[in-house]
Design a protein around this nucleic acid. Structure first.
Lengths: 337, 337
DNA sequence: GCAGTCAAGAAAAACGTTTTTGGAGTTCGA
DNA sequence: TCGAACTCCAAAAACGTTTTTCTTGACTGC
């Protein structure tokens, strides 16, 4: 392993100047096709790979994107968003620098500083649950796209799931199967997803002329035990529903347990639809859970695409984008008895 | 937002040379305490943050670590490893560049190249399931630590879970509760985890003088349906076991389903222990699943720590490290009837 | 009181690129 | 035929640091 091969070595080997090599490889400048081809071949033979630190220093483009997330840990969602962003980045020869802030403002400031010091060309500011955020002041001059998050400051582009549409899709799927009394296992946390899905549920019911029985809407913590408690409450109603729409798949898992405890079979006695398409739960449940997928991967890709255009293209207007949530049909929905 | 403030601005403002500023901030060189303090205060006032591209270019230290993973997507494990690595990195003022190879060798080569071009100081080469790997030739001269992976090439440090110990812990927990006939819901894939846990299971049984009934060891795909199938097979034995050790939590979820299908209650009629401590499954199951946690977070941290020492300290010997897997007790284990 | 150390800091070189400027040869219009 | 315009490429400056080398003055030991 001798010395790393630099642009100078390529220039010498090809019998041209460094300038010419740079132009030949980047496609810039005016060069005869013959020279360009020649240089490229020599570069390939020498296995030349430019030092991006140097090139970034000179050109003020590091070809690197910062990804700031609040918690990458507990859910597999984070991974999907990151994966989408990475795939998009990879296609554009970009690399992602990922930092995690543990929802700690001081740490967030430090980590963003670390990214800025490394001259990232732009930043993806991501949250793991769809929510409203305040964008840190340090990002003022930096191209930034919000992921699974929205800001009151509309100068930032953002991409979020269409929560309202997701709930409409799920509810209409149940209505389409013939259900008329439908319960909603709701999240008790006051986040944008909660409000959006509840509105969607009501809107879908209304659109089909179905009354919403408020006693069939019960809120709880958005996890298995919460779903179980909420579902049990709903099922003890005198006129129990034949179907349940659950805020997410973890709550749906709880609803399965509640059904089992009440001696109800899914989907025979009770149809269930979730949201998230949490592979690990939805596919492993018995029967498989019909659910509405959140477009995590797509959000990651969309965000990189947008960010990249904001960086290279000039004067692109910011956009607030909502992405559709597709229904994933499995076996937890059937016509009512 | 005028021009970015550089080291030259600090020098001018403090009335010293750039050299002095550099030394004052980095702690190197010989400077009087008075000058050092003065420069530091001025730098803070100006909000100076060095350009890491430039400093990396000159010092050949980018303060950046590459993280190469095969698939960050489907499991939440990846997130835990990354989080551990990030926390470790953050403490040392390092940043992680994360790339994903989708288990595609060509892409892997390209992505590693992208990292190397950006002059990462070292690389974490991670797999999402404990397995044997061939380290790409391009990493030959680069400080590298293997995470959740081992190589025949012992010049690389690596960190993996103690699979054997995990199985021993789980099995002994069941034996300690009084069980003597224990089934093993095994993974059919031939990966290191499979072999290690099976050996651990056998060793623990043998250590307590218990016979291993081969018909109580059934392999299947390592997911919910696989676990269900395997558990059903085991439970149809004439002399059914009173406890099941499952390769992972997803299979354990399948075992719960099998128990329910056989009218067995957990843990009254059947005790179950899993591996992974997949929060989403283990905590949401009813009853909560007792399981052995895999040290993903710890592996990430350990790897960064090791890598950092390999980078700064010279001539550190490579180490193959196994990390212990702690038992997480919930409610799926009880004495046999 | 003089060569030799030493402390403190400045000047300059270096890192590996990209970009700007410049220069030699060719073609072209008048 | 002469300058202008163009083509192709090279030389040099620039990016913002760190590191090496150099300078200056003060202090030692004898």
């Amino acid at each position: 392993m001798s010395k790393r091969v630099g642009i100078r070595d390529v220039a010498d080997a090809a019998g041209v100047s460094m300038t010419t090599v740079s132009h030949a490889l980047s496609g810039g400048g005016v060069l005869s096709d013959r020279t360009r081809e020649h240089v490229r071949r020599v570069a390939r033979e020498l296995n030349y790979a430019p030092n991006r630190l140097a090139s970034g220093l000179r050109s003020q483009r590091s070809q690197t994107i910062g990804f700031v997330s609040d918690e990458i840990s507990t859910t597999p969602f984070a991974g999907r968003v990151v994966l989408g962003a990475q795939d998009g980045a990879s296609e554009r020869d970009l690399v992602l620098m990922i930092v995690n802030t543990n929802a700690d403002d001081a740490l967030e400031g430090r980590e963003i500083g670390a990214l800025l010091q490394r001259q990232v060309d732009g930043i993806l500011f991501a949250r793991m649950y769809h929510q409203e955020v305040e964008v840190p002041a340090s990002l003022a001059g930096v191209p930034t796209v919000l992921v699974d998050a929205e800001s009151a400051d509309k100068r930032f582009s953002s991409v979020v799931p269409d929560e309202f549409g997701a709930a409409v899709t799920a509810t209409e799927h149940l209505i389409g199967a013939g259900h008329r009394r439908i319960g909603y296992v709701c999240n008790q946390d006051d986040i944008l997803a909660t409000a959006g899905r509840l509105r969607g549920f009501r809107a879908a019911m209304a659109a089909h002329g179905l009354p919403v029985d408020e006693s069939l809407i019960v809120s709880a913590t958005p996890d298995g035990p919460g779903g179980r408690r909420a579902a049990l409450r709903i099922l003890e109603a005198s006129d129990a529903p034949t179907a349940l729409f659950c805020f997410n798949d973890r709550m749906a898992l709880g609803a399965y347990q509640a059904a089992a405890l009440n001696g109800l079979s899914v989907p025979g006695d009770l149809s269930i639809v979730g949201v998230d398409n949490l592979e690990i739960i939805a596919a492993d449940l018995l029967p498989g859970l019909t659910t509405v997928a959140l477009p995590h991967y797509e959000m990651g890709r969309w965000a990189i695409d947008r960010l990249h255009r904001q960086i290279v293209g000039d004067g692109i207007e910011p956009v607030q984008q909502e992405l559709v949530c597709p229904l994933i049909e499995r076996d937890s929905v059937a016509p009512p008895r």
